[in-house]
């Protein structure tokens, strides 16, 4: 769960991002001080065909690939269109804006400040994930997922 004192930012782009564009943006964001947590949102890209006569066959998709961001390999499982960030303080926001301006040159984007992550676990969270759910990602994604969060070496 997030602490309400930390500012949050949402970056929403006009177009869904190619992995290369996302890689460039993430590398810029990771060099900015004060980013605590981040989630990449977008429509899911399944590894196998989920329904229909071809169910179970591998789904070959250019956007579902591994990108190198920071010092980590990140397996993209969604076609990213929205990025949520939790920051240490508001001082990082101008740098984030500058990073977006540099990367999003062919289409527009919107950087909003607000409250985009859950601050309290709901009863449904408790019922679904139990009392020992990972608090770092509860409210962002499924804490019972086998693939945990990716931890990037900070610049603090």
């Amino acid at each position: 769960m997030t602490d309400t004192t930390f500012p949050q930012v949402r970056i929403a782009t006009e177009r869904l991002l190619f992995p290369e564009t996302l890689e460039r943006l993430l590398n810029k964001i990771f060099s900015i001080k004060g980013v605590r947590r981040m989630i990449l949102n977008g429509p899911r890209l399944p590894a196998v065909v989920p329904s229909g006569p071809a169910k179970g066959q591998p789904n070959i998709h250019e956007m579902r690939r591994i990108i190198k961001a920071g010092n980590q390999d990140i397996q993209l499982e969604v076609h990213v269109g929205t990025i949520l960030l939790e920051l240490e303080n508001r001082e990082s926001i101008p740098a984030l804006k500058a990073a977006c301006d540099e990367v999003f040159t062919n289409f527009s984007y919107r950087l909003q400040e607000g409250r985009f992550m859950k601050t309290e676990p709901s009863i449904v969270d408790y019922a679904k994930y139990g009392p020992d759910a990972d608090k770092r990602i509860l409210g962002l994604t499924d804490p019972s997922s086998k693939s945990g969060p990716i931890i990037i070496q900070g610049t603090k």
């Binding site: 869904l16 991002l17 899911r44 399944p46």
Partner: peptide, 15 residues
């Protein structure tokens, strides 16, 4: 109803 891809293609989960 989703945003288009960067190259103007409509999103397709199966590409």
């Amino acid at each position: 109803s989703l945003r288009l891809d960067e190259d103007g293609m409509m999103f397709d989960m199966m590409q």
